[in-house]
């Protein structure tokens, strides 16, 4: 186990280093923020002076090495757009993203898992087909459109919920639904497969033959055995949620990392983009390791040291 974790750590460091290097250089192919910072009337000399002040006139390698030197000291640099340390900016946005991801995960699990169970228990019937169509339908519309429809219905017409921005709990409801609908089908699918899998096993058949009720069977045995693949999926689904958050956070003016990523990319706030991507890579790596460990629990035949990648 320790050897496995150490190797994973080494690989993770390598991956994050690769991601950062790639991001550092390809971002700079797209120019720099100087033009966005200055008024249109700025002259060429003004532009050059600003570029110099921001340090973007230095050779790329010099910029890269100074970035790495800072990184080693856990300094992610400073945003030239917001005039703040990158860690402060990310720190202020992270709680909102965690809230939204939590809300979305809650929505998708609370709806998706029970639906998956129902679909599995009614396997092969028209009812199950209709249900699965509905579940899939929920993820077949782009969130930038379903989001605004949710706002218009629940905030503008009915007035039940606030239309946008962060605030109390009620502000979290609509964006969580918009984002959660995307993952709902995944959870329903995995639950359904897991339950069908369990249903075909010997102990279930025996129990049913002995006359154990279906409801009892689900809550007592199936739920526990099917929960492990679900946790795995939940861990992996988090990175999908973070990707979907870019659009959802923009539509709902939710001040999380998704909106920050989008704005920083557009405004060429290189340091912030690097910080967000680093965090994303870290989360992805950690989730992968967690998934691996969970696999080894589900299926003892897989030993962690033997498992490649």
């Amino acid at each position: 186990m320790t050897r496995y974790l150490l190797r994973k750590l080494g690989e993770a460091t390598l991956v994050m280093f690769g991601v950062l290097t790639l991001i550092f250089f390809i971002q700079r192919l797209t120019g720099d923020p100087t033009f966005l910072l200055l008024p249109e009337t700025a002259t060429q000399a003004d532009i050059e002076a600003m570029r110099h002040a921001l340090g973007f006139d230095r050779p790329l390698m010099v910029q890269y090495l100074s970035f790495l030197a800072d990184l080693v000291r856990f300094d992610l640099g400073r945003s030239v757009i917001q005039n703040l340390p990158v860690t402060d900016i990310i720190g202020s946005r992270l709680p909102y993203t965690l809230m939204l991801a939590g809300g979305a995960l809650a929505v998708s699990c609370l709806i998706g898992i029970p639906l998956g169970v129902v679909m599995a228990l009614n396997h092969g019937t028209t009812f199950a087909t209709v249900l699965s169509s509905l579940v899939v339908a929920a993820q077949s519309l782009p969130t930038f459109w379903s989001g605004i429809i949710l706002i218009l219905i629940f905030a503008v017409s009915l007035g039940w919920l606030p239309p946008s921005s962060a605030g109390g709990f009620s502000h979290l409801v609509l964006p969580s639904i918009a984002l959660g609908l995307l993952s709902m089908a995944t959870f329903a699918r995995v639950t359904r497969t897991a339950i069908l899998d369990e249903l075909s096993k010997e102990y279930v058949r025996t129990a049913r033959a002995r006359g154990v009720g279906m409801g009892r069977l689900v809550t007592r045995h199936l739920a526990r055995n099917a929960s492990i693949p679900l946790i795995t999926v939940a861990a992996l689904e988090v990175s999908n949620l973070l990707a979907g958050a870019v659009v959802v956070e923009t539509v709902f003016a939710w001040p999380g990392l998704g909106q920050l990523t989008m704005q920083s990319i557009v405004s060429r706030d290189f340091m912030v983009v690097q910080g967000v991507v680093l965090l994303g890579a870290f989360v992805t790596v950690v989730l992968n390791v967690m998934a691996d460990i969970l696999y080894s629990i589900v299926d003892p035949r897989i030993t962690l040291s033997a498992r490649p990648s």
């Binding site: 690989e11 390598l14 994050m16 192919l29 870019v246 557009v266 890579a281």
Partner: peptide
């Protein structure tokens, strides 16, 4: 490792870079 790297980069970022 390369798949890990690409899975960690926001697609939007790649889109903007490609367009630029």
């Amino acid at each position: 490792r390369l798949t890990d790297v690409f899975l960690s980069i926001p697609a939007i970022l790649l889109a903007i870079i490609a367009v630029a």
